[in-house]
Design a protein around this nucleic acid. Structure first.
Lengths: 102, 102
DNA sequence: CTATCTATTGTGTTATGCACAATAGTATGA
DNA sequence: TCATACTATTGTGCATAACACAATAGATAG
């Protein structure tokens, strides 16, 4: 799979999933992996980056079968940013279709 | 415009344009620019890279109003590679739509 | 008490778009 | 003629994102 096509798109997918409902890292990875092959070393840094940027808040929850889970919750800014990304992405893919057309 | 979304896609668009008909650099830039904002310093290196990879051949043509133009023509390998990219890209965007869906 | 599973973090590499800059041929106006 | 502008291409270096490789750490089962 061409890794280049994923640039920026994985971030948007993560924002979408976490905006739908709070999730911890592995849950996000599973969610994306249902459709797109994605590496844990890709998802975790994005979660940290988006948290640092103020798009996510985090909180810990006990896990009976292993170490605590770090949950991510989208902030208002995160939801706004997701909206922008979705708009940009859809406009972009439409333009690309006009070039590669038919 | 999110530059990340363009990763890999500009290359595919260039392959598509040159496969449709032989073109020189600035012509390719104009073709892409009708839809997507793209920089000359993005397009020229891709043309050289694809030539080096055997996906394009080049030939010079006289230009009455300036320096010679370097034309690019897609090879059989280039056309095959374009087909693969188009297939991958469309499969990928479908999967993304399933995540960001509704 | 070692192995395994779950969950997360850290370092370094690669590829691509692009900003900044330069080179070079041709034409045109002062 | 010579400076300027336009056309066409090339070169250097940077930022970013995906990911390979690796490590850390808690919990549980054999």
């Amino acid at each position: 799979m061409n890794a280049q096509f994923k640039k920026g798109v994985v971030e948007m997918c993560i924002l979408k999933l976490v905006s739908s409902s709070d999730m911890y890292g592995l849950e996000v990875i599973e969610g994306i992996s249902k459709e797109i092959e994605v590496n844990e070393n890709t998802v975790y840094p994005i979660l940290r980056r988006l948290t640092l940027a103020g798009y996510f808040n985090t909180y810990k929850e006990k896990n009976p079968s292993g170490p605590d889970r770090k949950y991510y919750r989208a902030t208002k800014e995160g939801t706004l940013y997701l909206g922008e990304l979705l708009h940009e992405y859809r406009a972009f893919t439409k333009k690309v279709e006009r070039i590669i057309g038919e």
